[in-house]
Design a binder for these strands. Structure first.
Lengths: 172, 172
DNA sequence: CTACCATGGTTCAATGAACGAACTGAGGGG
DNA sequence: CCCCTCAGTTCGTTCATTGAACCATGGTAG
């Protein structure tokens, strides 16, 4: 779908949020960044998204302060996109939505499961650790493949996520 | 914006969720339904959305089981759109996103504040009551206007929300 | 020095979605 | 009989997404 960008008439924080992360593909780009995807080519291969759209979305997210674009080598010059602290805080909405989708729209059980690094227990839709009972920030989380995962894709990101992986740590 | 509808290549619960609530306007329709908006004309006036788009979004949400369309009077025949239990569970993602928008994108402070009906304390981005420490479902919540609210709009919904209002209860 | 490759884009024509104004249709009410 | 309301549908224009092709930078191999 195409989403227009603005909801000018809405005096509402949700509308402001949607102007940043409500465009098509944007929240999936953020999800990938949370997994640790950082390079243009990896986003591209994992998302199956037109290059022009990815380019535009990354620019929007950088401008909104969700991603930071930074040089990680000079020769040849290469930039990577990394989540800022503002981006980290999208963790809560993202888990909440993913859990809703898992509960009501996915026939097959969870595709990926989030675990608390320090205790290993599962994290629920409010980003709380079931065992510890505390709010868990994204830095303390590990993704593991779940029973509903089909594992059809063979891009580097999908391959890396077939084994447990610490959130935010670089892929591949 | 326009969002295409599918993310076929993504084997991910978040992608499934976005196929339902990720289209332009859809999440704002859900938010309005949470406020208690039920009639076509009220959504229309409050959202400033093209009629054809609203019509299509309502149909999608009904089909996905988020809204229920039901006759509430026979003469003249009139239908209303009401959130289902599946729709109620979008409460958590919606507060989480709204709170993120409020924290990082709204200059002026919260536009609307959610309070726990039984104790009156504020509800945070994980839908927990600050005082009671429990998870609060949408049925037990009241919206109140916040300091950042501009109050420019004069449609029936905006007017009704200028005073505290219990979530899900019919507007106006 | 030249050819080729990888990465990270931009450009462009075609398709599809959103927009907004006009129209339809069912059903009162005066 | 005329007019009004509510809930849509239809339609031409504008705008976003798509996907293929192209470009630019900087290695690297011969």
């Amino acid at each position: 779908m195409a989403l227009g960008k603005n909801y000018d008439a809405q005096d509402c924080s949700l509308a402001r949020a949607l102007e940043v992360i409500g465009e098509r593909w944007t929240l999936l780009v953020v999800r990938d960044a949370m997994y640790g995807v950082r390079r243009f080519g990896d986003f591209l291969a994992h998302l199956d998204i037109p290059r022009a759209v990815l380019s535009q979305r990354l620019a929007t997210l950088v401008e909104a302060g969700v991603l930071d674009k930074r040089r990680y080598q000079d020769s040849p010059p290469r930039d990577e996109y990394v989540l800022t602290p503002v981006g980290h805080e999208l963790w809560l909405p993202v888990v909440a939505l993913a859990q809703w989708g898992e509960r009501h729209l996915s026939g097959t059980g969870p595709r990926r499961v989030f675990h608390h690094l320090t205790c290993g227990s599962r994290i629920d839709g409010t980003a709380r650790c079931a065992a510890c009972g505390v709010q868990v920030s994204i830095e303390e989380v590990e993704v593991r493949p779940g029973p509903g995962l089909k594992g059809i894709r063979n891009d580097p990101v999908s391959v890396a996520l077939r084994t447990p992986h610490r959130m935010l740590h670089p892929i591949p």
